[in-house]
Design a binder for these strands. Sequence first.
DNA 1: GCCGTTTTCGGCCCGACTGTTTTCAGTCG
Length: 572
Amino acid sequence: MPVHNSEIADRFDRLADLLEIEGANPFRVRAYRNAARTVRGYPRSMADLLAEDVDLTELPDIGDDLAEKIRVLVASGELPLLDEVEERTPPALSELMKIQGLGAKRVKALHEALGIDSLEELQEAVDSGKVQEVEGFGEKSEEKIRRRLKKFSGSEHRTKLVVAEQIATPLVKYLHKARGVKDIVIAGSYRRRKETVGDLDILVTAGSDNDVMAHFTKYDEVEEIASQGETRSTVYLRSGMQVDLRVVPQVSFGSAQHYFTGSRDHNIAVRKLGQKMGYKINEYGVFDGDKRIAGKTENSVYKAVGLPLIPPELRENHGELEAARDGRLPDLVTLKDLRGNLHTHTDATDGHDNLRAMAKAAQEAGLQYLAITDHSKHLRVANGLDEKRLRKQLTAIDQLNDQLSGLRLLKSIEVEIREDGKLDLPDSVLEELDFTLCAVHHKFDLSRKKQTERILRAMDSPHCHILAHPSGRLINRREAYDIDLERILQAAAERGCAVELNAQPERLDLTDEGCRMARDLGVKVSIAADAHSTRGFDNLRFGIDQARRGWLETDDVLNTRSLRALLHFFNR
DNA sequence: GCCGTTTTCGGCCCGACTGTTTTCAGTCG
């Protein structure tokens, strides 16, 4: 079993927690946390890097010591220092630190005063009112811990972007009604258009005579006010979403946007650039000594450090600063660049609307071509098409195409990739299509080797033009099946096969990193709505968000092509 | 424990808010 990056990162985080509780050098503790962040966010697995003899000390925040610890971890699954520390300090104390309001010092205090070593023991201590008797705690602390314990699930929950939008939109509308409000922007990972967000960071500019904070905390959906100050408040909504609201003067709007949009790593890198030039950069502006030299707009912040504006989607410190410096920032694809959609279902299988309705909706969405890709016969739950029913649909498409102007329907199918890698319909019928979309919908639990080979075999077919939702994951619901994506993308590049970025907000499959890998390998990406109803074309904007996070430009995206160029691509 | 146009030692972000204090430690982002 290969050790995943997330496991390495989790162990470093646990080690950091326990060392912090033990009162270790805070910078040493931070070093483990920084390393955990680097490893967790790294696009390639440490195991793969080691197999290729990559020097891990070239990664940020990884030095000789941690490189060696990673090497041992990957080779043996062991982190001896963690075992050693866990001998002295109860491992579950690191769990307690996940409860908001409890840090290392207070966990240690509870451990020493009451012998609390686990969540259960903490619960008992709260129930019997012992916590408030510990020095440094009081009634309010105990009550807060009680509330947090009730909601504590153990693991961090991240909300899908589409759901975050549904929560944020009415809140922003409500905030606009506060007195003195000028600008409102939702910053954080929401603005970077990450597929999931941990909380909402809302930034407001307002005049000095404003009632934004009071207005905010009176919002109907607020369940609990965690903190409330003049410039910053935090609440929990009924939905469970944490919302941080910050108010800054208009003169700081740009620097505050930059600061609160992040990512953290990106900000640190920008601040370092500023430092080298003798500036201090914080949420209030860019300062040369006491003098503010920039900060009203984000553009001015970047300009102060000699860079062009970097789009929020790229701000992960994954090379965007170097690209900006060298004038290599990608010209990111936008929604209006899309000319068609290459993944659509109708009521012939598991879609809700008929062919004609889907065509009309595509026209209304401004598309010039629309591929009909119902399921194939193997997918019985979706009433998949056999040859006979598919041929009937092809006839219907021909007839409708004769009546349509401004939109061309393309004949296709989302054909099942069987366990042995063969396609679920014979070549004789696939030949009649404009192109074929291939997908895995069953046997998700094959080994990495078998799953990868299964897909590679499917791609050997001359009829495999696009690989749909390459990993099969459903965000927060189903893990990706285990594949060697790099190998698959390399094979796609060799065969002139495209891959899909499925734009359903619960799939977003490829990931941002997958998009970037595809781009680097020269594989074209189809940003596809996978529309199951006339409303499904709205998915495309989430696909665009993800594609932009993956550095994709217009030319990297298959369905930005004219119909003619697209058909040429399929006739490779 | 990491890092370096301040390079092998000495820094390492810091401002906002809470709660328990009586001037501030702890936590968070």
